[in-house]
Design a protein around this nucleic acid. Structure first.
Length: 121
DNA sequence: TGTTTGACTGGGA
DNA sequence: CTCCCAGCCAAAC
């Protein structure tokens, strides 16, 4: 591996959580995306779990709408990490996203894909 | 220092 | 539909 490549890898890793937060902050109200879609946009397609870790620590960073990130099936897999068991669902419903049985209704329609909606820098 | 555990996912049986 | 697996890698233990 070249020096440049390893430096790039290091930089990407160092800023990964912050990069995740930047993307999540761009999710419009009333829309949702998935851990994998964010990872994919950041060039780490197989690191969806790391996006989960980032969300786990997201309370430390202001203005990160963590409730708009769900899993690939539209399930609210992170609901237990919010203050109340129903907070994630309530936040979504408040902005017009219907939720039934811990799943986003019309997930396909509400889905916001950063790879399609954001410019690649 | 080694192992286990996940806010995950795509593929396969 | 269910179940399993490999790949992923930071934390926690």
């Amino acid at each position: 591996m070249t020096d440049q490549a390893s430096r790039k890898l290091y930089e990407r890793h160092k800023d990964f959580f912050e990069s995740v937060y930047m993307v999540v902050r761009e999710i419009p109200e009333g829309r949702v995306t998935s851990y994998g879609a964010i990872a994919s946009y950041l060039g780490a397609k197989r690191s969806a779990r790391m996006v989960g870790w980032a969300m786990n620590a997201s309370y430390k960073s202001p203005g990160v709408p963590a409730h708009r990130v769900v899993n690939r099936e539209g399930l609210l897999s992170g609901k237990h990490h919010f203050a109340d068991a129903d907070q994630m669902e309530n936040l979504l419903k408040r902005e017009g996203v219907e939720v039934r049985n811990d799943r986003v209704v019309d997930f396909k329609l509400k889905f916001w894909d950063p790879s399609r909606e954001l410019e690649v820098y």
